[in-house]
């Protein structure tokens, strides 16, 4: 592969998008050869952790293809996929990567030409963006945040919160939901950045300056991380305590 060629990984659901890609083939619709396809049974199977890991391992773009709303072979899988991908996009943004590098499309089994068209378009878009650039630390933090239960609950429960309300019967508006998602994603991402930093002992102030965060924000995260026994106090250096991660929490 030539230097300037961009790398794309696609996760396609068996019943619609994969079949659409087959039809593009049978009908000989040509499209750029940049994407490597992975077959899954349902777009709902695609875990945000896997998406982010794909970027971490060098993909310049990730494509998810599912059935049109209402066509899902498993009834609702594609609906959940949409929420998960939205979550992954928010995390990408946090890690400084253009969310446009991740694309979800509904392609039916009869849309061979459209599949080819989408491929051309997406490849162009990724070429436009160029090879992916990110700090490894930041992408890793995004990955671990996606594996964390709080964001996973939120991604799955979004529909319920929007339509049926929470335990108190409060129904969220789209705007409120967006704010909640942004806040939670920021919190989790910051916490995971701190956790990764603490592979070696550091003080609140050191972390704050390295991550460009306010010390009180860092301190709050430190308390939380301690409470969940993810980090522990290491030693007191010049009257300031330093902390270190307890177990090696790597990606995957």
């Amino acid at each position: 592969m030539k230097e300037e060629e961009v790398k794309i990984v696609g996760f396609l659901c068996n019943w619609c998008c994969y079949a659409g890609a087959d039809l593009a083939g049978v009908s000989r619709f040509q499209y750029p050869p940049n994407m490597r396809i992975i077959r899954v049974m349902c777009s709902g199977r695609v875990d945000p952790v896997i998406i982010l890991d794909t970027f971490l391992w060098g993909a310049d773009g990730v494509f998810i293809g599912g059935c049109h709303p209402g066509d899902c072979h498993y009834l609702q899988g594609n609906y959940y996929a949409e929420k998960k991908i939205d979550m992954a996009k928010r995390l990408l943004k946090k890690a400084g990567v253009e969310p446009g590098r991740l694309r979800l499309e509904w392609v039916s089994a009869s849309e061979g030409e459209r599949f080819a068209g989408v491929m051309k378009e997406f490849t162009e878009e990724i070429k436009e963006l160029g090879p992916i650039k990110f700090e490894k630390d930041e992408m890793e933090a995004a990955c671990i945040a996606a594996a964390d239960y709080s964001l996973r609950i939120l991604a799955t429960k979004e529909k319920e919160l929007l339509e049926e309300g929470n335990k108190y019967g409060e129904v969220f508006t789209r705007h409120e939901m967006d704010r909640l998602l942004d806040d939670m994603v920021r919190e989790e991402y910051e916490a995971k950045r701190i956790l990764l930093k603490l592979k070696r002992p550091m003080s609140v102030k050191e972390i704050a300056s390295e991550l460009n965060l306010k010390p009180n924000v860092v301190f709050r995260h430190i308390l939380d991380l301690k409470r969940y026994e993810l980090i522990e106090a290491h030693e007191i250096r010049d009257n300031t305590p330093t902390y270190i991660a307890k177990v090696e929490e790597g990606v995957e």
Binding site: W15, A19, D71, A109
Partner: peptide
């Protein structure tokens, strides 16, 4: 508005 051949082919 299900796609006819998509649901029929399987």
């Amino acid at each position: 508005n299900d796609c006819a051949i998509c649901i029929l082919a399987p």
